[in-house]
Design a protein around this nucleic acid. Sequence first.
DNA 1: CAAACATATGAATATATATTCATATGTTTT
DNA 2: AAAACATATGAATATATATTCATATGTTTG
Lengths: 123, 123
Amino acid sequence: MARKKKEEIPESCSCTIIHEDRINRVRKHMPKDEVLFNLAELFKSFADTTRVRILYSLFKEEMCVCDLSAFLGMTQSAISHQLRILKLARLVRFHKVGKVVYYSLEDDHVKEIFNYGLAHINE
Amino acid sequence: MARKKKEEIPESCSCTIIHEDRINRVRKHMPKDEVLFNLAELFKSFADTTRVRILYSLFKEEMCVCDLSAFLGMTQSAISHQLRILKLARLVRFHKVGKVVYYSLEDDHVKEIFNYGLAHINE
DNA sequence: CAAACATATGAATATATATTCATATGTTTT
DNA sequence: AAAACATATGAATATATATTCATATGTTTG
């Protein structure tokens, strides 16, 4: 009575591939893994309320760490750690004046990305 | 010898607020906390390689879970869990034909956001 | 030079989240 | 109805990450 007909489970996918044609067309246009990875990494930089608030603050004004800390009601350390991530993602730039470090947006991509994000939220 | 002059540490920020004027100008233009939170939540949906790959796959073709699973070389379960997140973020839509569920992009915001993301990466 | 201060950072902790595994749900087919 | 199948989902585990705490670095000022 043992009932085991279709014994050939394919690979990682436990199901039958239904649309080889679609997969082949999609494959042609997929960016390299590295690009997709970098894209996800970039969005990780936006994927935190604190970092979003920091970036939004810098839309209008250049600000120092102390300003951001006071304005956002968070410790200097927390802000500084997050600014490091934003620096690594090349989303903010900075310049020092004495002991004060002023941060500003690196380019306008952030604003544009945020605007489309808001458009999606408000639709 | 106890040397404790400036004893009045302000609030969450351990430093002196330097630019009250900047903070006040920024405050005027900050979106509500809820909006900033939702924006971060939206970007969280993009902040994972698997989800980026799923979304990119759907740029060109509507695909079923099985297609995505086979194409991306991941288990059906993993794909399905991630699709749930994309559904909750209203980034993908789906329709059922028999037992097959076809997924597609909800709107064009994703493409636009990705394009600006790529622009930032490639600059 | 010492004190004050703005900022940065390593380590620890707490929390979030991606994947796996097992199984459930719902549909089709025989 | 039972088998096959596509998909969904709860629980467990492993990993990533945000914040805190303590402290380091570098600059200014008395």
